[in-house]
Design a protein around this nucleic acid. Structure first.
Length: 392
DNA sequence: TAACGAATAT
DNA sequence: TATATTCGTT
């Protein structure tokens, strides 16, 4: 019952040795001289390796063959290592494991080759379907000239009420990837007392050009961005020239904007810089405010009644804010939120307006929070009331 | 030169 | 359409 000859056993070891090799090993085992054993084994290994090289060109067609060869070589190498002359290889114990590692690598390599055929199809599929974030999105990335590198992760936008899900942007996947490449973690801690640390913008901080309207005139915001963010933003020089990240005007941010407008006497009277200062939003730049103001004016301008119309604040059930019609409730809520964050006074300057697309019945009752959930940007309309609904 | 507004680009 | 960028003006 003793030991069963290797070739007769049902040993299903991963390493299979052809009978010829088993025979060879058996034959070698009869040799008494260790050096002789080693030489024989080594010679055999070399021959096998040579053949391996020959069939290497066909390794894709002969994966199993390669495997078998590999196993054989591996086994023989192990065996030959055992009989290696000690003085030529003093650290025999260490040599073996090393060799095994090496062989293991070879095995893995070959197995990879074997799997190649199986996998390449699926790989292609993966490439096509799973357009993976940063790097995989090469097309867009190239288009954007490394713009991607400047972007931040989703986490940040989720955290920041002013940066609601820019990655779920209307631009879809593109936006998602483009804006979420940079693993910047933004926590609420980064928000200042006002709770406003628009991290998006911090990217801008890294940009050389702050824009004509904001150069050097930014509020204390620029220096507030956490070092880690700043560091991440400066990951590469090429990013400096890239377009800055889109500012996402969340409902809350827009509220601030409107609030500032009120205090400044309306969109026509307010200047970007003033607005920005009033908004007290971290990282917000004049450029962004300017751009937003421009859009705001454009929208409000579409409707003749878009001019500022001062009126008592609590007069009716509807408050008109800088072109935004809000229900008193919504307005109060808005102010509450805003004030709690900025402490800015409430001075509802009321601007009657019903710009198309900028108005929406509050009644559609999308709570602001819900808006946040459903859209990454405030959307003018979400904060406006349809004229018809206005009860003035 | 900074800030602004409009035009234009993305 | 929304936002960024550019450009001319003040």
């Amino acid at each position: 019952m003793g030991s069963v000859p290797a070739e007769l056993s049902l040993d299903i070891r991963p390493t299979f040795l052809p009978k010829t090799i088993s025979n060879f090993l058996h034959e070698v085992s009869t040799i008494g001289n260790a050096a002789e054993k080693f030489l024989r084994l080594d010679d055999y290994v070399k021959r096998l390796e040579e053949e391996m090289r020959k069939i290497d060109a066909f390794k894709r067609e002969l994966p199993l063959c390669m495997l078998i060869m590999n196993d054989a070589i591996s086994a023989l190498k192990d065996e030959s290592a055992k009989w290696r002359i000690p003085n030529s290889q003093p650290v025999l114990k260490e040599f073996i494991p090393l060799k095994k590692e090496c062989d293991q690598k070879e095995k893995i390599e070959n197995e990879k080759e074997c799997r190649d055929k199986k996998n390449w199809m699926s790989s292609v599929q993966l490439c096509n379907t799973a357009v993976y974030p940063p790097k995989a999105n090469s097309n867009y990335e190239q288009k954007q000239h490394f713009k991607v590198e400047n972007k931040k992760t989703e986490g940040e936008s989720v955290e920041d009420p002013f940066q609601p899900r820019r990655n779920i942007d209307r631009n879809g996947g593109f936006m998602r990837f483009a804006y979420s490449a940079l693993p910047v973690t933004t926590t609420k801690d980064e928000k200042e007392d006002s709770g406003l640390s628009l991290l998006t913008p911090s990217i801008k901080n890294a940009n050389t050009r702050e824009g004509s309207g904001s150069s050097g005139s930014r509020t204390s915001s620029s220096s507030v961005s956490p070092p880690s963010v700043q560091a991440n933003l400066r990951t590469g020089p090429q990013q400096q020239s890239s377009r800055k990240q889109r500012r996402c005007w969340s409902p809350e941010l827009h509220r601030r904007f409107i609030n500032a407008l009120q205090q400044l006497g309306g969109s026509q009277a307010a200047t970007p810089k003033q607005i920005r200062e009033l908004m007290q939003v971290d990282g917000l730049t004049n450029d962004e405010v300017k751009s937003h103001l421009q859009k705001y004016r454009l929208h409000t301008r579409r409707v003749p009644s878009a001019t500022a119309t001062p009126a008592p604040a609590n007069q009716s059930s509807v408050v008109v804010l800088g072109g935004l019609l809000m229900s008193q409730d919504q307005y109060n809520d808005s102010i509450r939120t805003t004030s709690s964050q900025s402490g800015s006074p409430q001075g509802p300057l009321q601007l009657a307006r019903s710009a198309r697309g900028w108005s929406q019945t509050e009644g559609d009752k999308m709570e602001d929070d819900e808006e946040d959930e459903k859209s990454e940007s405030y959307g003018w309309k979400n904060h406006l009331h349809k004229p018809g609904r206005v009860d003035v």
